[in-house]
Amino acid sequence: MKRQKRDKLGRAHSNGYQAGLCGKAKEHCPYQNIEAKSQWLGGWREAVADRNMGLFR
């Protein structure tokens, strides 16, 4: 059970990272669950920081 929960949260983080790389706004987060939304936003923030540092274009 714990593995499934971790996988869902990891997927949310990855989806948020991809959204941040594509330049989507954080308001486009598709998750309603607090934990998943938090993970998505964390990934989104990482991607935005990476883009600002010039790691991706």
Score class of each variant (00 low, 15 high):
Lys37Phe: 04
Gly10Ala: 11
Gly43Pro: 05
Cys22Val: 14
Gly20His: 08
Trp44Thr: 01
Lys37Gln: 09
Asn15Thr: 12
Cys22Ala: 15
Gln32Leu: 13
Pro30Arg: 05
Asn33Asp: 09
Gly20Leu: 05
Trp44Gly: 00
Arg45Phe: 01
Arg45Gln: 08
Pro30Lys: 01
Ala47Ser: 02
Gly16His: 03
Gly10Arg: 15
Ile34Tyr: 03
Ser38His: 06
Gly16Thr: 00
Arg45Trp: 04
Ala12Gln: 06
Lys8Asp: 02
Asn15Ala: 15
Leu9Ala: 04
Glu46Asn: 12
His28Met: 09
Cys22Gly: 13
Glu46Thr: 10
Asn15Val: 11
Gln39Glu: 02
Gln18Phe: 05
Gly10Ser: 14
Ile34Arg: 14
Gln32Phe: 10
Arg11Met: 13
Ile34Thr: 12
Gly16Ala: 06
Arg11Ala: 14
Cys29Glu: 05
Asn15Pro: 05
Gln39Trp: 05
Cys22Tyr: 14
Glu35Gly: 09
Ala19Glu: 01
Asn15Tyr: 13
Glu35Leu: 10
Gly43His: 04
His28Val: 02
Ser14Cys: 08
Gly43Cys: 07
Gln32Met: 12
Tyr17Ser: 03
Tyr31Gln: 06
Glu46Val: 06
Gln18Pro: 08
His13Asp: 07
Ala12Asp: 06
Ala19Gly: 05
Asn33Thr: 11
Ala19Cys: 04
Gln18Ser: 07
Asn15Arg: 15
Ala12Lys: 06
Glu35Met: 02
Gly42Gln: 14
Arg45Met: 03
Lys8Ala: 08
Glu27Pro: 07
Asn15Gly: 13
His13Lys: 12
Asn33Trp: 07
Asn33Met: 08
Lys26Arg: 15
Glu35Phe: 11
Leu9Cys: 07
Gln39Pro: 06
Cys22Ile: 13
Gly10Glu: 12
Ala25Glu: 13
Ala36Glu: 01
Ala47Ile: 06
Lys24Ile: 04
Leu41Met: 14
Glu27Tyr: 11
Gly42Val: 09
His13Thr: 08
Gly23Phe: 00
Ala19Thr: 01
Asn33Val: 11
Leu21Asp: 07
Gly10Trp: 10
Ala25Phe: 13
Leu9Ser: 00
Gln18Glu: 07
Leu41Tyr: 04
Gln39Lys: 13
Ala12Phe: 06
Trp40Phe: 06
Ala25Cys: 13
